[in-house]
């Protein structure tokens, strides 16, 4: 007599969800675009690498090792070393984006980005902190298996080998969970801050981050609308995990998040790189599969 099939435990279901293969385009989109956004953010620093990392520029002295403003003291390097680090970072980012020596490039990019984030707190922003995490996740993943130089060379050597269409789900699930947690945490922080009753958005539109668009909006958007936008952001962010889990709210959530990032990017000057990085992760993780397939398979079959 045969035993009936064992019913799935919740752990089995979670594991199956985590490991379910994902379209390779999700991963390759992040691999191609995220390093370029990170380099664009860094570009205004990299072109002054000597002012950034060497004693040519202002350096905060050692603060004793227990000051939150200096999470790790890394002494300044010589101008030559600073320029070398800038060059290597640029090369690693470009190679990763091009899918050339992908694994080495991703590992080197992760290490260099972590160094740059810690070497100087004055130049470290949210993008600086997100960068090493993204590069590290890419390093551990099979990214570069399609749509890059490595993939093209592999295809030339072994034209008979099938093209990979999917990747193991782990890395995509990781980015998906990270985004939901990031938005949710941000929403709770806003809720605990001034977003329910204060004029937070309005108050940040008047300093030297102001762009032509934010100035236009300052003059044309009625006062109450800023508060309405705050409520919309709060509603989206606090409950982001729910919006992304439910299939029928996922697409509207992507649209709301992309709109939010577009506004942030257009209204707050250099914050555009953060907006673009988050948008890249968002599209890579949650955009409908057929959109991604259409973009990739039309543009680059390898």
């Amino acid at each position: 007599m045969r035993r009936p099939p064992r019913s799935l435990t919740p752990l089995d279901r979670v594991r199956a969800w985590l490991e379910a293969p994902q379209p390779i385009e999700r991963l390759e989109l992040i691999r191609i675009v995220a390093p370029l956004v990170l380099l664009a953010f860094l570009s205004s620093r990299l072109i002054h690498a000597d002012h950034w990392l060497s004693p040519i520029g202002f350096r905060v002295p050692y603060l004793g090792g227990s000051d939150w403003r200096q999470p790790l003291y890394l002494p300044p390097v010589s101008p030559g070393v600073a320029w070398t680090i800038a060059l290597l970072t640029t090369l690693a980012g470009l190679c990763l984006s091009a899918g050339l020596l992908t694994r080495v490039a991703a590992g080197a990019f992760a290490i260099l980005l972590a160094y740059l984030a810690l070497a100087d707190r004055l130049e470290a922003f949210t993008v600086s902190k997100l960068g090493p995490m993204i590069a590290l996740a890419l390093w551990l993943s099979p990214c570069g298996a399609r749509y890059g130089v490595d993939a093209w060379r592999r295809r030339r050597r072994h034209p008979e080998a099938p093209l990979p269409t999917h990747v193991p789900g782990g890395v995509i699930r990781y980015f998906q969970i990270f985004l939901a947690a990031m938005y949710s945490g941000a929403g709770i922080a806003k809720l605990r801050g001034d977003w329910l009753s204060g004029d937070v958005l309005w108050s940040h539109l008047h300093d030297n981050y102001q762009t032509a668009i934010s100035w236009f909006l300052v003059r044309s958007v009625p006062g109450w609308a800023w508060q309405a936008l705050q409520y919309l952001s709060l509603t989206f962010e606090v409950a982001a995990p729910l919006w992304f889990v439910l299939p029928w709210t996922r697409r509207p959530a992507v649209v709301v998040a992309l709109s939010m990032h577009a506004m942030i990017g257009l209204m707050f000057g250099p914050v555009i790189w953060f907006a673009l990085l988050m948008s890249t992760l968002l599209v890579g993780c949650y955009a409908p599969e057929r959109w991604l397939l259409r973009v990739f398979r039309r543009g680059a079959p390898v």
């Binding site: 790790l72 947690a181 941000a186 922080a189 801050g193 204060g198």
Partner: peptide, 22 residues
């Protein structure tokens, strides 16, 4: 530890209203 904490302090963005432009 501080260097690790630094990398997780990234989600609480602009929680408060600015009182003035500095």
């Amino acid at each position: 530890p501080l260097p690790v904490r630094f990398f997780v302090q990234e989600a609480a963005l602009f929680p408060h209203a600015a009182r003035d432009v500095i």
